[in-house]
Write a protein that binds this DNA or RNA. Structure first.
Lengths: 211, 211
DNA sequence: CATCTCGTTGGTCAACCGCCCAGTATATTC
DNA sequence: GAATATACTGGGCGGTTGACCAACGAGATG
């Protein structure tokens, strides 16, 4: 019964992953309260009771889904050290912005869940802020401080610049349905994703000449 | 039975206004599906049946609340023509941005409802886009085009610049609870509202010298 | 092959939802 | 002052929800 060969364990992990995937989709579209465990189960094609078996209750399911979200984000945003070694500070920043915009386009459900939960509040929200959002802000805060001191980054307070940058990167994809309705554009198209990254970089770095 | 003196009509309008106010609060915090008519009624201190009497059903209530939201926004964002006459184009734009940031800080429930509904979709969303959001984008689109041509505004596509600007202005206040938790700051404080407006103006106009 | 484990099912339960309606109380009308 | 109109109440209905549980059956175990 080594790791891979156990059929039962294999099926177990497969089902769990499927449920988490469906949960992310439903939670992100409807919000926690309006999302129903039965909807999620139906989406996977299993009985609703099974979700309780794997995740105890709706709250635990949500937390596991969110934890998965942040783990995946970290792995997908990791920069190749060899690649980074050849860049100067400004290029590194630009590259990070571009990677983040691409991530937002690829996984709009991430920001959707965050926004909905931040608006709603509750214990889940506190848990999410403490374990994921606050650490993230503290890490990027130090980074930005350095670049602001060196004149690379506009001289704007931590709070404003953080929320401006993140919101500006995310919302185009969070509101992709609205954009489609108003402008007739599919923002998940690579062309528009890259254009949006270009726009952000232009906006944040045009206070100084390009390197 | 002229306009004001009718006691019954007066009470009617008062109750309707109270219900609309409570509805905006509950809808913005919980989203349409998770918000309950009974919650809204309880918040006003009336029986749940009364809401049906005044607004037919939950959907109509939501639409009236949103319509009220946009009417109020238009009136609150109106610029004094005398004041505007003394400004050049750049000052006008800066002033508009500042007014909009103040509005977002004063009424975070507006953007909250818009965002939640845009994420969720549905017939309500289509109605909202068609009647309020699309016209708004078309108006501001023409305006921005002009300023981009004159070099006042960064040369970025309509879609990106629109969503960057609006998101950057709104989200700090939409996520005010998150900001409070992470940075220990009350963003509704005038000091932070003005700082945020300053930040946006700096960011969007620093590609050219100040006037 | 017998036993055990556990992923999975289907149904029950109280609570809550939006909607509907019969009844009450009070301002308005004639 | 009687008749009417209407803001407002309270209860009931079918439907959905999250939580819970007894039972099944196929894979793991010895």
């Amino acid at each position: 019964m080594e790791d891979g060969i156990n059929l039962r364990e294999k099926q177990r992990l497969r089902t769990r992953a499927q449920i988490l995937d469906a949960a992310l989709d439903v939670f992100s579209k409807k919000g926690f309260d309006a999302a129903s465990v039965r909807d999620i189960a139906a989406k996977v094609g299993v009985n609703h009771g099974l979700i309780r078996h794997h995740f105890e209750n709706k709250d635990k399911l949500w937390k596991e889904a969110v934890a998965f979200l942040f783990e995946r984000m970290e792995s997908e945003l990791a920069v190749d050290p060899d690649e980074e070694a050849q860049m100067n500070e400004r290029e590194k920043l630009e590259h990070n912005i571009r990677l983040y915009v691409r991530y937002c386009a690829r996984h709009p459900e991430h920001a959707r869940i965050m926004v909905q939960q931040s608006i709603h509040g509750s214990e889940r929200f506190t848990w999410m802020v403490k374990n994921f959002i606050k650490p993230q802000h503290q890490r990027s805060g130090k980074n930005l401080q350095k670049h602001r001191d060196s004149g690379l980054w506009p001289d704007i307070s931590d709070v404003s610049i953080a929320y401006i940058l993140v919101a500006a990167a995310q919302m185009l994809f969070v509101l992709s349905e609205e954009v489609a309705e108003v402008y007739g554009i599919d923002v998940s198209d690579t062309k528009h994703v890259e254009a949006h990254a270009d726009a952000l970089i232009k906006l944040f770095f045009n206070h100084q000449a390009p390197s």
